[in-house]
C-alpha cells in the first residue's frame, strides 16, 4: 500500500465520520441528500460481496465493514431516527435513483472484465459510485447556503477521489501489469464531478467567507 492510497482511504473514512458526527451530535441532516447516501449504501453492498469469497488483509476487511456499517447507519438515521428525520428536506432532494442505477447496471452488463455475478456487481458499484454524488451536488446547488460540516463532507470525498488517482498513477509505474481502464475512467469521471464544487470551496476558503454556490 502506498501513501496516496492510505491518505485516500483516510480522507474517505474522515468524510463518513464527519457526516455521522454531524448527524449524531447536532441531530440534523439538513443539507444532506438521502438519495446520495442510499446510493453509497448500494455501492458498498454490491462492491464488497468479495468479503464472503476473498480475504485480502485485516485492514481491507475492517475498512469494508466500516464503510458498510456507516453507510447503512447514515441511511437509517435520516429515514428513521425520530429527531434527525424531521430535518430531512424531502422536497429539495428530488433526484430519482433509477436515473443513475439503471444506466450503471446496463453499462456494467455490457462493459466488464468478466461476465460473472460478482464481477458485474463490482463493475456496477464502480459506475454507480462515480455518479452517486450527483443528488448531493444538486441539493447543494438548490439550497446554496451550505453549513461547514456539509461543505467539509463533500470536500473530503473529493480529496479521497483525487488521492486515489495519484495512487493509480503510482501503482501504474511501480507494479507490473497494473492497467485498469474501468476503474480509472469511472474514477476520473467521479473526480471531475467535484471540480466545480472545489472551485467555489477554495474561493470561499481563500476569501475567508461562508461557502455559497451560485444558483
Amino acid at each position: 500500500m502506498n501513501i496516496f492510497r492510505l491518505a485516500g482511504d483516510m480522507t474517505h473514512l474522515a468524510s463518513v465520520l464527519v457526516l455521522l458526527l454531524k448527524i449524531h451530535t447536532i441531530k440534523s441532516c439538513a443539507g444532506i441528500s438521502l438519495k446520495t447516501q442510499e446510493l453509497y449504501a448500494l455501492v458498498f453492498a454490491t462492491r464488497y460481496l468479495d468479503l464472503f469469497t476473498d480475504y485480502i488483509s485485516l485492514y481491507n476487511t475492517l475498512m469494508k465493514l466500516i464503510f458498510l456499517v456507516s453507510s447503512f447507519s447514515i441511511v437509517w438515521y435520516i429515514r428513521h431516527h425520530k429527531i434527525v428525520r424531521r430535518s430531512y428536506d424531502k422536497d429539495q432532494d428530488t433526484f430519482r435513483h433509477y436515473f443513475l442505477v439503471l444506466p450503471c447496471f446496463l453499462l456494467a452488463l455490457v462493459i466488464n472484465e468478466k461476465f460473472t455475478v460478482k464481477e458485474i456487481m463490482w463493475t456496477f458499484s464502480l459506475y454507480l459510485e462515480a455518479v452517486a454524488i450527483l443528488p448531493q451536488l444538486v441539493l447543494l446547488q438548490r439550497t446554496r447556503n451550505i453549513d461547514n460540516l456539509t461543505g467539509q463532507y463533500v470536500f473530503l470525498l473529493g480529496a479521497y477521489r483525487s488521492l486515489y488517482i495519484l495512487n493509480w498513477i503510482y501503482r501504474y509505474f511501480t507494479e507490473p501489469h497494473y492497467v485498469h481502464w474501468i476503474t480509472w475512467i469511472s474514477g476520473l469521471v467521479q473526480t471531475l464531478l467535484y471540480a466545480d464544487f472545489f472551485y467555489y470551496y477554495f474561493q470561499s476558503w481563500k476569501n475567508n467567507v461562508k461557502l455559497e454556490l451560485p444558483a
Binding site: 492510497r5 476473498d54 464503510f67 472484465e113 468478466k114 464481477e119 463490482w122 495512487n167 476503474t183
Partner: peptide
C-alpha cells in the same frame, strides 16, 4: 493468490 484487477482497493 492472483486477484482480479483493482480488487484490493476499497
Amino acid at each position: 493468490k492472483e486477484l482480479p484487477q483493482g480488487h484490493d482497493e476499497l
